[in-house]
Design a protein around this nucleic acid. Sequence first.
DNA 1: TTAACTGTATTATCCGTATTAGTACAGTTA
DNA 2: TAACTGTACTAATACGGATAATACAGTTAA
Lengths: 121, 121
Amino acid sequence: MISLNYRDSRPIYEQIKDELRKLIVTGAMSADEKLPSVRALASQLAINPNTIQRAYNELESEGYIYSVPGKGSFASADAGTDGARKEELLAKVQELVKELRYLGVTHEDLLALLEEGKEHD
Amino acid sequence: MISLNYRDSRPIYEQIKDELRKLIVTGAMSADEKLPSVRALASQLAINPNTIQRAYNELESEGYIYSVPGKGSFASADAGTDGARKEELLAKVQELVKELRYLGVTHEDLLALLEEGKEHD
DNA sequence: TTAACTGTATTATCCGTATTAGTACAGTTA
DNA sequence: TAACTGTACTAATACGGATAATACAGTTAA
C-alpha cells in the first residue's frame, strides 16, 4: 500500500503524507475508509510508530483524514476541499512549464502531455 | 541577482542552484558569462563561501556551469543539453496534473493555464 | 614581481531536525 | 478482561546543512 524510498532526501513522514494524500484524493481510498493503525503501518514499514503518528497528525490538520481515539484513522469525505493545495499545485505547474519552455519544449509538446492523461472529465 | 528564503525548508545551496540554473537556462545569463566569485556571492548573501562552492560544484557536474581555477566560474554554452532535466520536469508536471485532475481541475482549466504563459515559441 | 584576485580542498564544530526508543494513559471493542 | 485504538511525552541518537578557519595553486593587473 505504501512504499518508502530511503534514497529520497525527503523525510519519511513527508513521503508517507504524500502517498496517503494521493490515495485519498484520487479516490483509491474511499471516504471514511479506515487507514492502517499507527502501529500496524509502522510495523509494516519497519519504522517507528512516532513517525507514522506525525504523518497522521499533519494529514489530519490539513483535513485529509480524521482520527478517533480508540477507533482509528479514516479518510475524510471532503479531502482537499479548501483549495489551498490546488493553488499550490497550480503554481508549481506554472513554474515547471516556464522552465520547460526555455528548455525547448514547445507548446504543442505540452498540449500533447495534457491530452495524454485526459481520459474523462 | 540571487535571493534566499530562510523560511524555505530546502537547503540554501539548493535554492542557489535553482536560481542560477534558471538564470542560465532562460538566457538571462549568456553563454560564457562570468558568475560572481565564490567569495563575492557568499559575502553578498551573507553566508559561508563553502555553501556557494557546493552549489557551484554541483552545477558544474550537472553541466550548467564550468569553473576555471584562478579565473572564475562561467555559464555553460550547452546548459541543460542532455535532456535529463527536461525529462525530470516533464515527469513532475505529469504527477501534478494527475492530482490536479482529481482535485477537480478541468481539462479546460489546464489548457488555459498553458495558454496563459505562451507568448512566443 | 608583487598583491589581490580566482577556484579548490580540508578539517573541525555547531545546530536543527528526523528518527528511534521507551513508556504511559484513555477510549473502544470483542 | 484482554487486545486493540489514538495520543502524549521525554530522552537519545544520527545525519546533514551550515559555519569557521585555513591552506594551496593558478590568474591577473598594477
